[in-house]
């Protein structure tokens, strides 16, 4: 292959990449830079970009002392840890259960992924009414088996529990569907060999399948992690962060700071911190096991 041909090849590759780079720059890089810049400024809603006041590190100082930010970081981390573990365990369990061609597997698979297709706003409304203290179906059925009505969304602990359950309900199918695809793509020879060697179900699952799924598992966890940190709509509708601050996740706090308090600069500061936390967690996960590592020379 001549070198001029190679150069031309590379040029063409860049040419094809260009549209993606333009979209990426306009849609992601520019807003990110703006957010970072705004975090050092004061700007209220309704003012022009040019009216922003540079305030140095004021916003960051304010944030360090801000009790609301601290509590929202705590709520977010607790929420993320609980839902991720629960969704991973349940999703994996379901995938293993429906991996084999059992009768009606297609029907079950379709039913299990239905929650994924519902828009988060509708999910929020559905669960808000199911869990309603006065007219909710859940209290109605609990009442029929003699359990007194609970104020699901009105009690700080129950409200947190409720948003956890809702998230698990909606997002376990995501993990399930990806792991199911992963399981089905596992090389049959390896499984066959392990079976001949006399491996039992537990050994096959935890010593063969799970290690082979590691890359897929990691990407799934990473995507969910990022998603959980952005979760807003469902909590917005179900509790609006209440009672008190018991369900106020960071994204909701940022929303309120930006659009209710109308302080865009300070909201950007918290957004930068949220981004930083996500970056650290993602890097940690990638360091632990990078699915792209083997192809890093590409």
């Amino acid at each position: 292959m001549s070198s001029s041909f190679k150069i031309r090849q590379i040029r063409i590759a860049y040419l094809f990449l260009l549209p993606a780079i333009i979209v990426f720059t306009l849609g992601l890089v520019v807003p990110l830079i703006n957010t970072f810049e705004l975090s050092f400024n004061r700007l209220s809603m309704g003012s022009r970009w040019s009216d922003r006041d540079y305030v140095g590190l004021d916003n960051y100082e304010r944030m360090i002392e801000d009790d609301h930010v601290r509590s929202s970081v705590g709520v977010t981390l607790r929420f993320a840890a609980i839902v991720l573990v629960a969704e991973l365990v349940i999703g994996m369990g379901l995938a293993l259960l429906l991996e084999k061609p059992i009768k009606g597997a297609a029907v079950f698979r379709t039913i299990f992924i239905l929650p994924l297709m519902v828009s988060p706003v509708a999910v929020g409304l559905i669960w808000r009414y199911l869990l309603d203290g006065r007219i909710g179906l859940i209290n109605h059925y609990l009442g029929q088996i003699g359990i007194p009505a609970q104020t699901w969304l009105g009690d700080p602990n129950l409200a947190f529990f409720s948003i956890v359950i809702t998230d698990i309900w909606q997002w376990t199918p995501f993990i399930f569907i990806i792991l199911l695809a992963g399981l089905q793509a596992l090389p049959a020879e390896v499984l066959e060999a392990s079976r001949i060697d006399g491996a039992n179900w537990w050994q096959m699952t935890f010593l063969i399948k799970v290690p082979m799924l590691r890359s897929i598992l990691l990407v799934t966890v990473l995507m969910r992690l990022i998603d959980v940190f952005r979760a807003l709509e469902v909590i917005f509708i179900m509790t609006f962060g209440g009672p008190g601050r018991s369900t106020q996740v960071m994204s909701l706090h940022i929303y309120k700071t930006a659009f209710t308090s109308q302080t865009l600069g300070y909201a950007s500061t918290i957004a930068v911190v949220l981004m930083f936390i996500m970056l650290v967690l993602s890097l940690f996960l990638l360091l632990f096991s990078n699915p792209l590592k083997e192809r890093a020379d590409f």
Binding site: G133, A149, L153, G154, D155, G242, P243
Partner: peptide, 9 residues
């Protein structure tokens, strides 16, 4: 306290 359950939401 004198409202139907779920008043906190």
């Amino acid at each position: 306290e004198n409202s139907p359950p779920g008043v906190e939401a």
